[in-house]
Simulated scan of single mutants.
Amino acid sequence: MTVVTQSAEVAATGAREYLTFRLDQEEYGIDILKVQEIRGYEPPTRIAHAPEFIKGVVNLRGTIVPIVDMRLKFNCSKADYNSFTVVIILNLRNRVVGIVVDSVSDVMELSPDNMRSAPDIESAIDSSCILGLGSVGERMLILLDIEKLMSSVDMGLVAVED
Rank of each mutant, 00 (worst) to 15 (best):
I146H: 05
P51N: 02
D80M: 12
D24W: 15
S103T: 11
M115L: 11
L33Q: 15
M1W: 12
L131P: 01
A118Q: 08
I47W: 02
F53Q: 04
P43F: 02
M1A: 15
T85S: 00
N75G: 01
M108A: 04
N82S: 02
S152N: 04
L149E: 07
I54M: 11
V158K: 06
Q25S: 11
E17F: 09
I64M: 09
S117C: 11
H49W: 07
K55F: 04
E37W: 08
G29P: 06
L133I: 14
E42C: 05
A159R: 15
V153M: 15
I32W: 15
V87R: 00
P119N: 02
D24T: 12
V4G: 07
E42N: 06
I64V: 15
G134S: 08
S77R: 10
G14P: 06
I146N: 03
L60Q: 03
M155N: 15
G56Q: 13
A118D: 03
L143H: 10
I146R: 05
S77I: 08
I67S: 02
M70A: 09
A48M: 12
E138A: 04
V10G: 01
V153T: 11
L157T: 05
Y41I: 00
V86I: 04
I99H: 05
D113K: 06
Q36E: 09
E37H: 04
A79K: 10
I38F: 02
V100P: 08
S77D: 10
S128W: 06
D120G: 08
S117R: 13
I54W: 01
V87K: 00
L23D: 05
K55S: 11
S152C: 05
K78W: 11
S128K: 13
G137F: 00
G14K: 09
G134P: 03
A15M: 01
D126V: 03
V86Q: 13
T45D: 02
N75W: 05
A50H: 07
G14F: 10
L72D: 01
K34A: 12
L19I: 05
A118S: 11
I54F: 02
R46H: 08
V160Y: 11
V96N: 08
E109Y: 01
N59Y: 09
S83K: 01
V68S: 01
I142T: 15
E37A: 09
K148A: 03
I32P: 10
